[in-house]
């Protein structure tokens, strides 16, 4: 199977998994981590950011990390 197709299959599986996880209380962190994995899948493979300079990869990952941490911190209090 082609790599793009493998990534696509994983993204579909992660989407289904996040909906299942959302049915359980206190699984907010899991749902957000699954969303972050999908975000990385789309940006690094579909958008081919993996081929880009480290600056772009690190900046996007820092943004994603900051976003997830802020949502978890605000959502948990």
């Amino acid at each position: 199977m082609e790599k793009t197709t493998k990534i696509y299959t994983s993204l579909i599986a992660l989407t289904v998994l996040s909906v299942v996880a959302a049915n359980y209380t206190n699984w907010v962190t899991v749902v957000l981590i699954l969303a972050a994995l999908k975000f990385i899948g789309v940006s690094f493979f579909f958008m081919e950011l993996k081929k880009a300079h480290a600056f772009w990869k690190i900046t996007l990952l820092l943004y994603l990390m900051l976003f997830i941490v802020l949502i978890i911190l605000l959502g948990s209090n």
Partner: peptide, 15 residues
Amino acid sequence: CDLIWLLLFPVIYLL
């Protein structure tokens, strides 16, 4: 558009 939706979906529909 995918990326933005991947952030919107869990927060608005699931969180």
